[in-house]
Computed example of a mutant assay.
Amino acid sequence: MNKKLVALLLAGALALAALAGCSTQAADQSPAQPESQAPAESAVVNAAALKGPTAMGLVGFMNDAETGVASDNDYRFSIAASPDELTPQIAQGALDIACVPANLASVLYNNTDGGIRVLALNTLGVLYICDRNGSIGSVADLAGKTIYASGKGSTPEYALNYILEGNGLTPGVDVTIEWKSEHAECVAAMAQDESAIALLPQPFVSAAQLKDESIRIALDLTEEWDALQSGANESSLITGVVIARAAFADEHPEAVAAFMQHYRDSVAFVNDDVQSAAELVGAYDIVPAPVAQKAIPACNIVCIEGDDMKTRLSSYLEVLFEQNPKAVGGALPNDDFYYAA
Protein backbone atom coordinates (compact mmCIF):
# COMPACT_ATOMS: atom_id res chain seq x y z
CA MET A 1 0.00 0.00 0.00
CA ASN A 2 1.57 3.33 -1.02
CA LYS A 3 1.87 6.30 1.24
CA LYS A 4 -0.80 8.27 -0.65
CA LEU A 5 -3.44 5.57 -0.11
CA VAL A 6 -2.58 5.25 3.59
CA ALA A 7 -2.98 8.97 3.99
CA LEU A 8 -6.40 8.91 2.33
CA LEU A 9 -7.62 6.05 4.58
CA LEU A 10 -6.37 7.80 7.70
CA ALA A 11 -8.10 11.01 6.71
CA GLY A 12 -11.36 9.14 6.15
CA ALA A 13 -11.15 7.47 9.54
CA LEU A 14 -10.56 10.77 11.24
CA ALA A 15 -13.54 12.29 9.43
CA LEU A 16 -15.84 9.46 10.55
CA ALA A 17 -14.64 9.84 14.13
CA ALA A 18 -15.33 13.56 13.99
CA LEU A 19 -18.83 12.94 12.65
CA ALA A 20 -19.51 10.40 15.41
CA GLY A 21 -18.34 12.89 18.00
CA CYS A 22 -20.61 15.60 16.60
CA SER A 23 -23.55 13.19 16.62
CA THR A 24 -22.92 12.27 20.26
CA GLN A 25 -22.59 15.93 21.23
CA ALA A 26 -25.79 16.79 19.42
CA ALA A 27 -27.63 14.05 21.27
CA ASP A 28 -26.23 15.24 24.60
CA GLN A 29 -27.36 18.79 23.87
CA SER A 30 -30.87 17.90 22.62
CA PRO A 31 -33.74 19.24 24.76
CA ALA A 32 -34.73 17.01 27.68
CA GLN A 33 -38.05 15.18 27.30
CA PRO A 34 -40.86 17.03 29.07
CA GLU A 35 -41.58 15.61 32.50
CA SER A 36 -45.21 15.09 31.49
CA GLN A 37 -44.12 12.38 29.07
CA ALA A 38 -42.51 10.38 31.84
CA PRO A 39 -44.75 8.00 33.81
CA ALA A 40 -46.09 9.69 36.92
CA GLU A 41 -44.91 8.17 40.17
CA SER A 42 -47.52 6.14 42.01
CA ALA A 43 -48.74 7.82 45.19
CA VAL A 44 -50.37 6.51 48.32
CA VAL A 45 -53.79 8.18 48.54
CA ASN A 46 -55.59 7.87 51.87
CA ALA A 47 -59.25 8.66 51.29
CA ALA A 48 -62.40 8.51 53.39
CA ALA A 49 -66.12 9.22 53.25
CA LEU A 50 -69.08 9.26 55.59
CA LYS A 51 -71.81 6.67 55.78
CA GLY A 52 -74.70 7.97 53.72
CA PRO A 53 -75.07 9.82 50.42
CA THR A 54 -71.60 11.42 50.47
CA ALA A 55 -70.05 7.95 50.21
CA MET A 56 -72.48 6.41 47.72
CA GLY A 57 -70.93 7.99 44.65
CA LEU A 58 -67.57 6.53 45.64
CA VAL A 59 -68.47 2.82 45.66
CA GLY A 60 -67.59 2.08 42.03
CA PHE A 61 -64.16 3.61 42.56
CA MET A 62 -63.68 1.74 45.83
CA ASN A 63 -64.52 -1.53 44.15
CA ASP A 64 -62.14 -0.80 41.25
CA ALA A 65 -59.33 -0.07 43.71
CA GLU A 66 -60.05 -3.21 45.69
CA THR A 67 -60.11 -5.45 42.58
CA GLY A 68 -57.03 -3.86 40.99
CA VAL A 69 -58.85 -2.13 38.12
CA ALA A 70 -57.80 1.28 39.50
CA SER A 71 -54.10 0.65 40.04
CA ASP A 72 -52.44 3.88 38.93
CA ASN A 73 -52.04 4.85 42.59
CA ASP A 74 -52.28 3.06 45.91
CA TYR A 75 -55.81 4.02 46.95
CA ARG A 76 -56.74 3.26 50.56
CA PHE A 77 -60.38 3.90 51.51
CA SER A 78 -62.22 4.03 54.81
CA ILE A 79 -65.81 4.80 55.78
CA ALA A 80 -66.57 6.78 58.94
CA ALA A 81 -69.81 6.97 60.91
CA SER A 82 -69.57 10.69 61.75
CA PRO A 83 -67.66 13.83 60.73
CA ASP A 84 -66.00 13.86 64.16
CA GLU A 85 -64.01 10.80 63.12
CA LEU A 86 -62.64 12.46 59.98
CA THR A 87 -61.92 15.98 61.21
CA PRO A 88 -58.77 15.22 63.25
CA GLN A 89 -57.44 12.84 60.59
CA ILE A 90 -57.69 15.53 57.95
CA ALA A 91 -56.20 18.22 60.17
CA GLN A 92 -53.30 15.94 61.19
CA GLY A 93 -52.54 14.79 57.64
CA ALA A 94 -53.62 11.17 58.08
CA LEU A 95 -56.16 11.63 55.28
CA ASP A 96 -55.37 13.13 51.89
CA ILE A 97 -58.83 13.24 50.30
CA ALA A 98 -62.25 13.02 51.94
CA CYS A 99 -65.95 13.34 51.19
CA VAL A 100 -67.44 15.58 53.88
CA PRO A 101 -70.39 17.93 54.51
CA ALA A 102 -70.05 21.15 52.54
CA ASN A 103 -70.01 23.46 55.55
CA LEU A 104 -67.45 21.26 57.33
CA ALA A 105 -65.09 21.84 54.42
CA SER A 106 -65.27 25.57 55.09
CA VAL A 107 -64.80 25.04 58.83
CA LEU A 108 -61.71 22.91 58.17
CA TYR A 109 -60.34 25.52 55.77
CA ASN A 110 -60.62 28.19 58.45
CA ASN A 111 -59.25 25.96 61.18
CA THR A 112 -56.20 24.89 59.16
CA ASP A 113 -55.20 28.35 57.91
CA GLY A 114 -56.33 27.59 54.37
CA GLY A 115 -55.04 24.03 54.31
CA ILE A 116 -58.07 22.58 52.47
CA ARG A 117 -59.08 22.57 48.80
CA VAL A 118 -62.51 21.62 47.47
CA LEU A 119 -62.18 19.37 44.43
CA ALA A 120 -65.86 18.90 43.60
CA LEU A 121 -69.44 18.91 44.80
CA ASN A 122 -70.45 15.29 45.27
CA THR A 123 -73.98 15.47 46.68
CA LEU A 124 -76.61 18.15 46.27
CA GLY A 125 -79.64 18.35 48.56
CA VAL A 126 -80.99 15.24 50.28
CA LEU A 127 -83.66 16.87 52.47
CA TYR A 128 -87.37 16.22 52.00
CA ILE A 129 -90.61 17.31 53.65
CA CYS A 130 -92.66 14.17 54.22
CA ASP A 131 -96.27 13.61 55.21
CA ARG A 132 -98.76 10.73 55.38
CA ASN A 133 -102.08 12.27 54.42
CA GLY A 134 -101.16 14.24 51.29
CA SER A 135 -101.93 17.60 52.85
CA ILE A 136 -98.71 19.30 51.70
CA GLY A 137 -98.34 20.22 48.05
CA SER A 138 -96.36 23.46 48.28
CA VAL A 139 -94.29 25.44 50.77
CA ALA A 140 -97.30 27.70 51.31
CA ASP A 141 -99.19 24.70 52.67
CA LEU A 142 -96.77 24.59 55.61
CA ALA A 143 -98.28 27.78 57.07
CA GLY A 144 -99.81 27.05 60.46
CA LYS A 145 -98.32 23.57 60.56
CA THR A 146 -95.77 21.88 62.83
CA ILE A 147 -92.71 20.27 61.27
CA TYR A 148 -90.77 17.61 63.16
CA ALA A 149 -87.10 17.86 62.32
CA SER A 150 -83.63 16.82 63.46
CA GLY A 151 -80.44 18.79 62.99
CA LYS A 152 -80.95 22.05 64.82
CA GLY A 153 -77.91 24.30 64.49
CA SER A 154 -76.77 22.56 61.31
CA THR A 155 -77.61 22.33 57.60
CA PRO A 156 -81.21 21.06 57.98
CA GLU A 157 -82.16 24.10 60.08
CA TYR A 158 -80.43 26.59 57.79
CA ALA A 159 -81.90 25.06 54.63
CA LEU A 160 -85.42 24.89 56.05
CA ASN A 161 -85.25 28.48 57.30
CA TYR A 162 -83.96 29.71 53.93
CA ILE A 163 -86.79 28.05 52.03
CA LEU A 164 -89.51 29.09 54.46
CA GLU A 165 -88.33 32.72 54.50
CA GLY A 166 -87.92 32.72 50.73
CA ASN A 167 -91.59 31.83 50.51
CA GLY A 168 -92.69 34.52 52.95
CA LEU A 169 -93.00 32.31 56.03
CA THR A 170 -91.26 33.12 59.31
CA PRO A 171 -89.95 30.06 61.19
CA GLY A 172 -91.35 29.98 64.72
CA VAL A 173 -94.16 32.35 63.79
CA ASP A 174 -95.91 31.07 60.68
CA VAL A 175 -94.49 27.57 60.98
CA THR A 176 -93.69 25.69 64.19
CA ILE A 177 -90.55 23.55 64.07
CA GLU A 178 -90.25 20.93 66.77
CA TRP A 179 -86.65 19.80 66.96
CA LYS A 180 -85.81 16.20 67.79
CA SER A 181 -82.43 14.70 68.58
CA GLU A 182 -82.72 11.93 65.97
CA HIS A 183 -84.48 11.33 62.65
CA ALA A 184 -86.10 8.22 64.14
CA GLU A 185 -88.00 10.43 66.58
CA CYS A 186 -89.48 12.37 63.67
CA VAL A 187 -90.67 9.14 62.04
CA ALA A 188 -92.12 8.02 65.37
CA ALA A 189 -94.08 11.28 65.57
CA MET A 190 -95.49 10.58 62.11
CA ALA A 191 -96.48 7.07 63.13
CA GLN A 192 -98.47 8.44 66.08
CA ASP A 193 -100.22 11.20 64.10
CA GLU A 194 -101.39 10.77 60.51
CA SER A 195 -101.36 14.54 60.00
CA ALA A 196 -97.75 14.96 61.23
CA ILE A 197 -95.14 16.46 58.92
CA ALA A 198 -91.41 15.74 59.10
CA LEU A 199 -88.19 17.00 57.57
CA LEU A 200 -86.07 13.94 56.74
CA PRO A 201 -82.88 13.30 54.77
CA GLN A 202 -82.10 10.50 52.33
CA PRO A 203 -81.47 7.63 52.74
CA PHE A 204 -83.50 7.85 55.96
CA VAL A 205 -86.61 8.71 53.93
CA SER A 206 -86.28 5.51 51.91
CA ALA A 207 -85.62 3.41 55.01
CA ALA A 208 -88.74 4.82 56.65
CA GLN A 209 -90.85 4.25 53.53
CA LEU A 210 -89.78 0.60 53.35
CA LYS A 211 -91.24 0.18 56.84
CA ASP A 212 -94.30 2.40 56.35
CA GLU A 213 -95.66 2.82 52.83
CA SER A 214 -97.96 5.64 53.91
CA ILE A 215 -94.98 8.01 54.29
CA ARG A 216 -94.64 10.07 51.12
CA ILE A 217 -92.33 12.78 49.85
CA ALA A 218 -94.33 16.00 49.75
CA LEU A 219 -91.58 18.54 48.96
CA ASP A 220 -88.04 18.20 47.64
CA LEU A 221 -86.04 20.95 49.36
CA THR A 222 -83.45 20.88 46.57
CA GLU A 223 -86.14 21.83 44.04
CA GLU A 224 -87.58 24.42 46.40
CA TRP A 225 -84.11 25.92 46.88
CA ASP A 226 -83.56 26.09 43.13
CA ALA A 227 -86.91 27.83 42.68
CA LEU A 228 -85.65 30.73 44.80
CA GLN A 229 -82.53 31.32 42.68
CA SER A 230 -82.12 34.19 40.23
CA GLY A 231 -79.25 36.26 38.89
CA ALA A 232 -75.62 35.44 38.20
CA ASN A 233 -74.63 33.99 41.58
CA GLU A 234 -77.11 31.16 41.82
CA SER A 235 -76.52 28.74 44.67
CA SER A 236 -77.52 25.14 45.17
CA LEU A 237 -78.54 23.22 48.24
CA ILE A 238 -75.39 21.18 48.82
CA THR A 239 -74.87 18.24 51.13
CA GLY A 240 -71.35 17.01 50.45
CA VAL A 241 -68.08 17.88 48.75
CA VAL A 242 -64.79 16.17 47.93
CA ILE A 243 -61.85 17.88 49.63
CA ALA A 244 -58.09 17.42 49.62
CA ARG A 245 -55.38 18.67 51.88
CA ALA A 246 -53.75 21.61 50.13
CA ALA A 247 -50.27 20.19 50.73
CA PHE A 248 -51.22 16.88 49.14
CA ALA A 249 -52.85 18.57 46.14
CA ASP A 250 -49.77 20.73 45.60
CA GLU A 251 -47.32 17.83 45.93
CA HIS A 252 -49.32 15.26 43.94
CA PRO A 253 -51.38 17.00 41.23
CA GLU A 254 -51.20 13.90 39.02
CA ALA A 255 -52.65 11.75 41.79
CA VAL A 256 -55.44 14.27 42.36
CA ALA A 257 -56.25 14.32 38.64
CA ALA A 258 -56.30 10.51 38.53
CA PHE A 259 -58.50 10.34 41.64
CA MET A 260 -61.02 12.72 40.14
CA GLN A 261 -61.20 10.81 36.86
CA HIS A 262 -61.96 7.62 38.76
CA TYR A 263 -64.49 9.53 40.84
CA ARG A 264 -66.30 10.90 37.76
CA ASP A 265 -66.53 7.39 36.37
CA SER A 266 -67.81 6.10 39.71
CA VAL A 267 -70.56 8.71 39.95
CA ALA A 268 -71.68 7.89 36.40
CA PHE A 269 -71.77 4.18 37.28
CA VAL A 270 -73.81 4.76 40.46
CA ASN A 271 -76.41 6.87 38.66
CA ASP A 272 -76.58 4.64 35.56
CA ASP A 273 -76.64 1.22 37.25
CA VAL A 274 -78.52 1.74 40.49
CA GLN A 275 -79.00 -1.93 41.26
CA SER A 276 -75.31 -2.84 40.99
CA ALA A 277 -74.33 0.30 42.85
CA ALA A 278 -76.81 -0.47 45.64
CA GLU A 279 -75.27 -3.90 46.09
CA LEU A 280 -71.85 -2.28 46.54
CA VAL A 281 -73.29 0.31 48.94
CA GLY A 282 -74.59 -2.57 51.02
CA ALA A 283 -71.35 -4.54 50.74
CA TYR A 284 -69.36 -1.57 52.05
CA ASP A 285 -71.82 -1.22 54.96
CA ILE A 286 -72.83 2.32 54.01
CA VAL A 287 -76.56 1.55 54.11
CA PRO A 288 -78.40 -1.72 53.40
CA ALA A 289 -78.68 -2.52 49.70
CA PRO A 290 -82.53 -2.38 49.55
CA VAL A 291 -82.48 1.08 51.11
CA ALA A 292 -79.72 2.22 48.76
CA GLN A 293 -81.59 1.01 45.69
CA LYS A 294 -84.62 3.09 46.65
CA ALA A 295 -82.59 6.08 47.86
CA ILE A 296 -79.90 6.56 45.19
CA PRO A 297 -82.19 8.24 42.61
CA ALA A 298 -83.23 10.77 45.28
CA CYS A 299 -79.75 11.45 46.67
CA ASN A 300 -78.65 13.90 43.95
CA ILE A 301 -75.21 12.29 43.58
CA VAL A 302 -73.06 14.45 41.30
CA CYS A 303 -69.50 15.38 40.42
CA ILE A 304 -69.47 19.13 39.76
CA GLU A 305 -66.07 20.80 39.39
CA GLY A 306 -64.45 24.04 38.27
CA ASP A 307 -66.28 27.35 37.94
CA ASP A 308 -69.72 25.77 38.33
CA MET A 309 -68.63 24.22 41.60
CA LYS A 310 -67.21 27.51 42.84
CA THR A 311 -70.33 29.51 41.95
CA ARG A 312 -72.75 27.10 43.57
CA LEU A 313 -70.69 26.43 46.70
CA SER A 314 -69.60 30.00 47.40
CA SER A 315 -73.20 31.22 47.16
CA TYR A 316 -74.42 28.36 49.34
CA LEU A 317 -71.84 29.16 52.01
CA GLU A 318 -72.95 32.80 51.92
CA VAL A 319 -76.49 31.68 52.76
CA LEU A 320 -75.19 29.73 55.75
CA PHE A 321 -72.90 32.59 56.81
CA GLU A 322 -75.80 35.03 56.85
CA GLN A 323 -77.74 32.76 59.19
CA ASN A 324 -74.83 31.77 61.41
CA PRO A 325 -71.15 32.57 60.68
CA LYS A 326 -70.07 29.67 62.89
CA ALA A 327 -71.69 27.29 60.41
CA VAL A 328 -68.84 27.97 57.98
CA GLY A 329 -66.06 28.45 60.52
CA GLY A 330 -66.52 32.14 61.21
CA ALA A 331 -65.53 33.48 57.78
CA LEU A 332 -66.18 32.75 54.13
CA PRO A 333 -63.23 30.97 52.44
CA ASN A 334 -60.90 32.76 50.04
CA ASP A 335 -60.59 31.85 46.36
CA ASP A 336 -57.83 29.31 47.03
CA PHE A 337 -60.46 27.16 48.75
CA TYR A 338 -61.76 26.22 45.31
CA TYR A 339 -59.36 23.84 43.56
CA ALA A 340 -58.28 24.72 40.04
CA ALA A 341 -56.65 21.80 38.23
Score class of each variant (00 low, 15 high):
residue 5 L to Q: 11
residue 16 L to N: 02
residue 18 A to H: 10
residue 19 L to R: 12
residue 19 L to S: 11
residue 19 L to Q: 12
residue 23 S to P: 00
residue 24 T to K: 11
residue 25 Q to E: 15
residue 25 Q to C: 07
residue 27 A to I: 12
residue 29 Q to E: 14
residue 31 P to E: 03
residue 32 A to S: 06
residue 37 Q to T: 10
residue 48 A to S: 06
residue 70 A to E: 03
residue 71 S to E: 15
residue 71 S to K: 14
residue 80 A to Q: 12
residue 96 D to A: 11
residue 99 C to D: 08
residue 109 Y to A: 06
residue 114 G to I: 01
residue 121 L to I: 14
residue 122 N to Q: 07
residue 124 L to Y: 11
residue 126 V to A: 08
residue 127 L to P: 00
residue 128 Y to L: 04
residue 130 C to V: 13
residue 133 N to M: 14
residue 137 G to F: 13
residue 142 L to I: 07
residue 143 A to I: 04
residue 148 Y to N: 11
residue 151 G to R: 04
residue 152 K to Y: 11
residue 158 Y to E: 09
residue 176 T to Y: 01
residue 176 T to R: 07
residue 180 K to E: 10
residue 180 K to G: 04
residue 181 S to Q: 13
residue 188 A to L: 12
residue 191 A to Q: 15
residue 191 A to W: 03
residue 194 E to L: 06
residue 194 E to M: 09
residue 195 S to E: 13
residue 198 A to T: 15
residue 199 L to C: 12
residue 200 L to P: 09
residue 201 P to M: 14
residue 204 F to H: 03
residue 206 S to F: 05
residue 219 L to F: 07
residue 220 D to C: 03
residue 228 L to W: 08
residue 257 A to H: 11
residue 265 D to H: 13
residue 267 V to L: 09
residue 288 P to Y: 08
residue 308 D to A: 14
residue 308 D to H: 06
residue 312 R to K: 14
residue 315 S to T: 07
residue 320 L to I: 03
residue 323 Q to S: 09
residue 323 Q to F: 09
residue 323 Q to A: 10
residue 324 N to H: 04
residue 331 A to G: 03
residue 341 A to V: 10
